[in-house]
Computed example of a mutant assay.
Amino acid sequence: MSEIQLFDNGEFELRIVPDGDSFKVQAPGLARSLGFNEARDMLRTVPEDEKGSEIAPTLGGNQQVWHVSEAGFYRVMGQRQAARIKNDAIRKQVTRFQKWVFGDVLPRLRRGELVAQTRTPIPEDYAAALRRLADEVDARAIAEKQRDELLPLAEAWSDLMEADGTFDWAAVAQIFARITGGLGRNNFLDLLRSDDLKILKANNTPYQFKGMDRFFKVIPTKAGRDATPTTRVTADGLDWLRKRLIKHFNHQSTLFAIGEIA
């Protein structure tokens, strides 16, 4: 296992492990700082490919410890909305932690301090030193590009999410603008109603399919003869839609490769 890098401000700490050009964050400390009772409560909304576990040193000896990937870290940071936490002390704690992460930890990671602090020993000759330096510069540039692309998504996540944890169609269209080429709300809905995708009916409620209740929240109409139900998209629904949109556009054009959009 790579060397653990500790970020500590006296109140909070993050244990971060280099992972190629990216990094992983140990889940227990991250969950406590975000006000969760246990790491598993935080990890419920994290996709399988953005979390994992491995043997790591702890105060109680080597133990199996859960972690989140860089993308999973941005996801849980964005999903945890302090304004929705009822406990005043925990709400203020989460606010302080997020301010520290976005204002201090992520800028340090973006500057490559994680790479610098875990650098391998100096090579034995000049040519090897140049190769090592070039590799580090390339790795740092790739890592910074990935973080710069994902960080705005993490920061915008809480702004787009409603209090019940769902998204309206305008927000969903905005989230997937990179995949769809910038389709607005109405054109995006037309796409979902098209014969190619056939995800939504004419009234914008989803067709019946396995897991529909997990992906969409349909709010019944209370009054009005011509009124239609309101459909909102859950966090799981976003991932479900993302996979189908990527597959659709990959078949339609060479501009979007499968897996290009995280």
Results as ranks from 00 to 15, higher is better:
147 R>E: 07
129 A>Y: 01
9 N>T: 11
83 A>K: 13
239 D>Y: 15
111 R>F: 08
88 D>Q: 15
147 R>D: 02
124 E>K: 08
22 S>E: 15
111 R>H: 13
198 K>A: 15
22 S>I: 11
217 K>A: 13
202 A>C: 01
200 L>I: 04
254 T>A: 13
24 K>G: 00
112 G>I: 10
108 R>Y: 00
34 L>I: 08
75 R>M: 08
93 Q>I: 00
190 D>L: 03
72 G>Y: 04
54 E>Y: 06
140 R>F: 07
91 R>M: 02
120 T>N: 06
164 D>I: 09
261 I>E: 10
39 A>Y: 05
235 A>G: 07
257 A>H: 11
159 D>R: 06
175 I>N: 09
47 P>C: 11
99 K>M: 12
192 L>H: 02
79 Q>P: 01
130 L>S: 11
73 F>N: 08
244 R>L: 11
191 L>G: 06
90 I>P: 03
166 T>V: 00
104 D>N: 14
33 S>F: 08
59 L>D: 07
228 T>Y: 04
156 A>P: 01
103 G>R: 10
170 A>I: 06
249 F>N: 03
173 A>E: 14
205 T>C: 10
97 F>A: 05
22 S>A: 15
35 G>K: 04
88 D>S: 12
53 S>P: 01
227 A>N: 15
87 N>F: 01
95 T>E: 15
109 L>D: 00
239 D>R: 15
240 W>Q: 10
27 A>T: 10
112 G>S: 03
33 S>T: 12
137 V>S: 01
218 V>W: 08
130 L>T: 11
243 K>C: 05
37 N>G: 14
247 K>V: 10
97 F>N: 05
207 Y>W: 15
